[in-house]
Design a binder for these strands. Structure first.
Lengths: 227, 227
DNA sequence: CGGCATCCGTGACGATACTG
DNA sequence: CAGTATCGTCACGGATGCCG
């Protein structure tokens, strides 16, 4: 009958961090979460944006994540008859873990190896913690030579580790948003330094390395017009 | 000559989170960091507090961490001629990652399996984020039936993900501190609920589930005497 | 074409034994 | 005490095949 559930490997420690690592400590799992934080994605898109993962491991991880309540499969209504994977609230709650990792790992981006894959929206996580508070929920397009992505800011300051930021929708996404409140134009290295924290938005604007477009209060706040 | 360095496996992605996982994503690494956040430890002590890790994996991880600048080996002066492992500043910078993981994983502590190992200081990480600001640096002993540990609070509020908290010394430790500013006495389940955030210190005191001993301002702040 | 399942070679992991 | 040596097992990565 039961075809021998291989029983997920556990640290068997009564420790909150160990429990978290039991759930998401496997190779690739947190990077799949990173992709799904950009919104619902199809299997093939995930596979394309996770270069190096093998098909069976990706399928297995998605199955594990579904079994643990981190993600769900959903079938889109026709004619777009595709199945997409989507984070649950529990899965989206991993955002603070990913931002903490991104903040710690940002200095390592100083050396860009020729073998490194790159997607524009991978710049989103370090940036989320570094943008000044907009005071109001806002969607910001970020335009790099390498591509365009967008951020969804809650308005009440940078994203810290204090739980999910807003409703539960995607926190960032690939490509431009439908209706953005502001648009940032900068080069990849400026974006890297912003994410690392060695440069802030006001400095970058003053140095001519960053253009902030937009008319609303969010764009003004990003420019530093606090009055 | 060079016996072919097997070259650490990398995700090869130009992404801050992926870079961090390249460094600390291997099994056991973050739990070793958790142990070393309690201060310098000997190999045998690490092995004792990481039940399940095999000796060669532990040795290998410590070597990797040393090579990556996360930890250092240090030989204690005689007569205590033992070698201890100690986090570097870079390694200690992983505290926000571990607190984010602990916060996310805390709800999973609701079911305590009979196979789970337990060390008192494993309660420290979830607690660090949940104690009210003491206003002043303080050392707090926490007394459970299961054992005693202590926390070193910076004073400026709970530990968020905004970088290292204070100087760089241990953030918590096993057993009582030499000179504690306050002493908390509670049972394990109360400690778990505090860490989970479903209960706060003031509530626990009022419910008679937590005693806060001590005379100084830190103890008063923990009691909620904000005046 | 999207979503896997299968097969296979390699390397990482876990337990035990052993050594300076 | 602080690891190294050895070995069986399993997870991973890559390629291919199947099936709606």
């Amino acid at each position: 009958m039961s075809p021998r559930q291989p029983r997920r490997r556990s640290y068997d420690q009564y420790c909150a961090s160990a429990r978290a690592l039991d759930a998401v400590g496997d190779r690739w799992t947190l990077l799949i979460v990173r992709e799904l934080l950009a919104g619902p994605r199809r299997y093939t898109d995930l596979h394309a944006d996770l270069p190096g993962v093998s098909t069976d491991v990706l399928a297995g991880r998605l199955k594990d994540m579904e079994a643990q309540g981190l993600a769900t499969r959903r079938k889109l209504p026709p004619p777009a008859a595709a199945t997409v994977y989507e984070l649950t609230a529990r899965g989206a709650g991993l955002l603070p873990v990913l931002t903490a990792l991104a903040e710690w790992g940002a200095p390592d981006l100083a050396d860009r190896r020729p073998t490194d894959a790159l997607r524009a929206h991978w710049y989103a996580l370090p940036l989320l913690r570094r943008l000044p508070p907009t005071g109001v929920p806002a969607v910001v397009d970020v335009v790099l030579d390498e591509g365009v992505f967008h951020l969804r800011l809650a308005g009440d300051g940078p994203v810290h580790g204090d739980g999910p930021v807003h409703g539960g929708g995607p926190v960032y996404g690939d490509g431009p948003a439908e209706a953005a409140d502001a648009r940032l134009v900068l080069d990849a290295d400026t974006c890297r330094e912003l994410g690392e924290g060695t440069l802030d938005v006001a400095q970058a604007v003053r140095a001519g390395r960053l253009e902030v477009h937009g008319e609303g209060p969010a764009a003004a706040a990003l420019r530093g017009e606090t009055g």
